[in-house]
């Protein structure tokens, strides 16, 4: 019974980049991603990202929601909510609909928060492009 409940589709799978691993390149996932180790390049997921306190990322990130507790050098574009924990160190621009920053978090970069969020902004841009083409 336990196993049946834990059955997972790739969309909601939980990719884990552990402390003993470094990933280099274009990393794309469908499900939730947990980063405890290192990643350089780019990271995108259709679901949630959790960068733990031991994690170090040098990449532009795209996700649905993001919880940052580690070190990030790169831009962070999130459709919904970004949570910066007290241990977070972010050097890069942030774009999201909702931003929550805990006391102690370090953020060096520009913030674009609220409104439609990046997902809808992108959709609007595409629509505008199409209209211009016509």
């Amino acid at each position: 019974m336990l196993g049946r409940d834990l059955k997972l589709k790739p969309e909601d799978a939980e990719t884990i980049i552990g402390t003993g691993v470094k990933v280099e390149g274009t990393f794309t996932a469908f499900g939730d991603v947990i980063v405890k180790g290192q990643l350089t390049g780019s990271l995108s997921t259709e679901n949630n990202l959790s960068l733990r306190s031991s994690g170090k990322v040098e990449a532009n990130i795209r996700a649905k929601n993001a919880s940052i507790g580690g070190e990030l050098k790169g831009n962070l574009t999130v459709d919904e909510k970004i949570e910066l924990a007290a241990t977070a160190k972010v050097s890069g621009d942030i774009h999201c609909r909702v931003l929550a920053i805990e006391e102690g978090a370090v953020l060096n970069g520009r913030c674009k928060v609220g409104g439609a969020g990046p997902k809808d902004t992108l959709k609007e841009k595409k629509k505008e492009d199409k209209v211009e083409e016509k």
């Binding site: 552990g18 390149g25 274009t26």
Partner: peptide, 10 residues
């Protein structure tokens, strides 16, 4: 063909 996984302590 997109990313490399480098092991450190695995």
């Amino acid at each position: 063909n997109k990313y490399q996984i480098i092991s450190k302590r695995i």
